[in-house]
Amino acid sequence: MSDATTLLVVKDLATTFQTPSGPLPAVGGVSFTLKENETLGIVGESGSGKTVLSRTIMGLQPRRNVEVTGSVLLNGFEVVGASEEAKRAIWGLEVAMVFQDPMTSLNPVMRIGKQIDEILRVRLKMDRHAAKARAIELLELVGIPSPAERYGVFPGELSGGMRQRVVIATALAGSPKLLMADEPTTGLDVTIQAQILNLLQSVKDQMSMSVVLVTHDLGVVATRTSRIIVMYAGRIVEMGTTRDVFARHRMPYTRALLEGSPKVSNPSHTRLLAIPGRPPNLLDLPQGCAFAPRCSFATDICRKERPELEPSFEDGHAFACWNPLPVSQGVPA
């Protein structure tokens, strides 16, 4: 793993929206790297900035009222500040995206085959027959039964799980090096979720891509990522290998997240520990650590000064906390 080449370098990335009530720092100073063939999980509550982060990495932000600073180096291409024209060249071919809701991420009036064809014909300059053959191949790759017949159906004729497979096929069409999956299973049945996640993993291996898996569900990232970033209020509060984050986390927020997700090993009727309070208002962030108002370990310094991300163990583990949990206190996954 250590000698694999780096695909993505994110440095001091900040995304600030200009709103009528003032600047809103949705992402504030995020840095991390992603290697080839690696799967990175980004977890956090709703509103923690994970979706904005993933879209900023793609260079996908509103045309107006947004300021992006820092750097996103994707396979040598600087995304921040690049023109639409320049980004269009990498979109689809270098980086592709799988969306949350397969009900809205496919064009309802276009045959699914055509939606996969599009990129093949326009971007890869394939002729009609080659594109169709490839599209059917992709449909087969994502596990759609009788792909040749399904090529001509409309999205409305498919179930949610099947549609999400089609969405993945469209994302794979350009053989991207990086696949951004933003809550790819949130809109799906639990039984389908595992299938889609397994599918993502198998296509990642087959096509040797890197995957960024954005989710609020720790169960999703537990077995399928090699590294995890935990976000809170637009910042990374802990990151490291999946193993370390689950077993040896130092940040109380990470623990709170883990305690808040159900485990099969718990006896039935175990109460889940909810995190008290609500995520902070990004327009009015507390002076110190953003998690301090909800944290049972908070002390004076937590309310005064924001902790920086500090390296802790090997393998790039780091956390931002003044009162970290002792190493032994981790909850095993």
């Binding site: 996908l60 060249a89 689809g92 980086v95 592709a96 995206m97 599009e118 326009v122 969405v167």
Partner: peptide, 9 residues
């Protein structure tokens, strides 16, 4: 799906 088309280039 419009954003999806956009990030397909």
């Amino acid at each position: 799906f419009v954003i999806a088309a956009k990030v397909q280039g």
